[in-house]
Each structure stands twice: as structure tokens, then as C-alpha cells.
């Protein structure tokens, strides 16, 4: 009994010393780090890898019924774009609006709303989760992004899909809203470009005429007022290089939590 106790105790001690050394190493790095945020940010990679492992089968986000719809779906971020280009588009109810698909694609395209509505559509009732903490349930109809990208034809080194928006949330240079997802989320069946919300054309406050729905991620990924979809290899040269408007302001690129 005694020897067993001792050996187990020794084992625990050795383990604890190991953990302690690791913790001290981490603490040391933390204290001398020029920017401690870089260490805190390392958790994002861990979260991305863990969630991707759990989502390997591309499960769907929960879909709800009409009875579950939020009576009032909160509008957030830009609710009325005020750029000259946007105002011109709104003046004739987006009749002149077109969606550009370009970048690392074999067949760049420029699609009107009628073009988009001729493609196969998907309708889903899903929950929208804002990074602030609130949630709202809405019904979305739109064009699945995956088939659209397949039609455009991806170059072999294409890695990210960037969504350029018409709203100037930040104001001035670098103020235009944008977002990006990787191909895993771009080809998820619930990732759609929505033109219809709760059976009515998308309202301006919710991103008319077209917005992204990337279920399984937080609200700021769901870019509104879409103008252009650009396929790229790297996010480094877009905006401030972090993959999105809010990502450039400290938020996670992977917004699965």
C-alpha cells in the first residue's frame, strides 16, 4: 500500500510540476508579450479547429417553424445606407442593382435580381444570433452560394469568398462593410444569398436587395447590401487584412461562438 501510495503521489507530483512549468511558460510569454491580445487570440484557432472537427459532417443549423418567428426582427448595424451609390439604387427600388462575381473564378458574372431568382432557391427559418447576445428568428429565401460559385468556376488556389457591401458603416476610407468565409462555410447548404425575408422582399433595414445568410456563425458575418462577391486566395490585402469590417475592429473571423 505504501509503495503504491508513494508511486502514485510521485506521479501526481511529476504531472503537477509539468503543468506548472507549462503554466509558468505561458505566463512568462504573457507578461513579456508586446501585445497580450495575441495570446488571448490564440484561442480562436483552437475554437475553429474544435468546431470544424465537430461540424465535419456539415450538419444543418436548426430550422424552426412559422410559429417560432420573432414578432419583430431587430435590425442592427447599418439600417439605412447613406452612400451616394446606395441612394441612387434605392431611388428606383434597386432596379439597376447587379451582383458581381469575380476574383479567382473562371467565369466572372454580373447578375440582376431576376437572374438570381431564376436559379434554384432555398427557404429556411433560422435563428440569427448577434455578437451582443440577442437572437431573432426569421424566414429567409435565397440562392445557395455553393452552386453559384460552382457555375462561376473556382481557380485551384481559391480559398476565401469575400462579400463587398454598399454600406459605409465605418465612414470614410476603410469604412465600407465587407465580410468573408472560407470554402467550408461557402459550400454549406444553408449558406444562401437571401432576397426575401418573412415572405416579403428584403427590407432596406435588413440589407436590401441581397444579404448573406451563413447560419452557424454570429450576426456580423451575415453581410447586408451585397454588391460584389470576390473569390480570393488570401484576405491580407482586403480592408485591414482581417477578413471583415468587425474583424478589422478586434472581433473573431471565425464567429461560431
Amino acid at each position: 500500500m505504501t509503495s503504491k501510495f508513494l508511486s502514485r503521489r510521485r506521479l501526481l507530483t511529476a504531472g503537477a510540476v509539468g503543468v506548472g512549468a507549462l503554466a509558468l511558460g505561458g505566463l512568462n510569454r504573457f507578461l513579456i508579450a508586446p501585445n497580450y491580445l495575441q495570446i488571448l487570440e490564440s484561442a480562436e484557432g483552437l475554437t475553429l479547429r474544435a468546431q470544424r472537427a465537430m461540424l465535419a459532417g456539415q450538419p444543418l443549423a436548426r430550422e424552426f417553424s412559422e410559429a417560432d418567428l420573432s414578432p419583430i426582427f431587430k435590425a442592427n448595424g447599418t439600417v439605412l445606407p447613406d452612400t451616394a451609390a446606395c441612394e441612387a439604387l434605392m431611388a428606383n427600388d434597386f432596379a439597376d442593382w447587379r451582383l458581381t462575381i469575380d476574383g479567382m473564378v473562371t467565369t466572372p458574372a454580373s447578375l440582376s435580381m431576376a437572374d438570381l431568382k431564376r436559379l434554384p432557391q432555398r427557404t429556411q427559418i433560422t435563428r440569427h444570433d448577434c455578437v451582443e447576445g440577442w437572437s431573432a428568428i426569421g424566414k429567409w429565401t435565397g440562392v445557395p452560394l455553393g452552386p453559384l460559385l460552382q457555375t462561376a468556376g473556382l481557380a485551384p488556389n481559391a480559398r476565401f469568398v469575400v462579400f463587398h457591401c454598399a454600406d459605409d458603416l465605418g465612414g470614410g476610407a476603410n469604412g465600407l462593410y465587407y465580410e468573408s468565409v472560407d470554402l467550408v462555410d461557402a459550400f454549406h447548404p444553408q449558406t444562401i444569398l437571401a432576397h426575401t425575408m418573412n415572405d416579403a422582399p428584403l427590407k432596406v433595414a435588413h440589407g436590401a436587395p441581397l444579404r448573406l445568410r451563413v447560419e452557424r456563425q454570429l450576426g456580423y458575418k451575415h453581410a447586408k447590401y451585397l454588391m460584389r462577391i470576390e473569390v480570393v486566395e488570401s484576405l491580407a490585402n482586403i480592408g485591414r487584412g482581417n477578413g471583415g469590417f468587425w474583424e478589422d475592429r478586434g472581433y473573431e473571423w471565425y464567429a461560431g461562438i
Binding site: 450538419p59 444570433d129 456563425q217
Partner: peptide, 23 residues
């Protein structure tokens, strides 16, 4: 905490039922 994650919701939808929803 995990039930508030939209990613985890898709992977483990039972958590939403266990706690009665994200909110």
C-alpha cells in the same frame, strides 16, 4: 455557454432542447 454557440448548436442540437433554447 456552449449552447449559446451557433456552431455548437448545429453539432449538438440536443443542448438547445436541454436548456429550452439559446436565450
Amino acid at each position: 455557454g456552449l449552447t449559446m454557440s451557433p456552431g455548437i448548436n448545429a453539432a449538438v442540437p440536443g443542448l438547445l432542447d436541454l436548456f429550452g433554447g439559446r436565450q
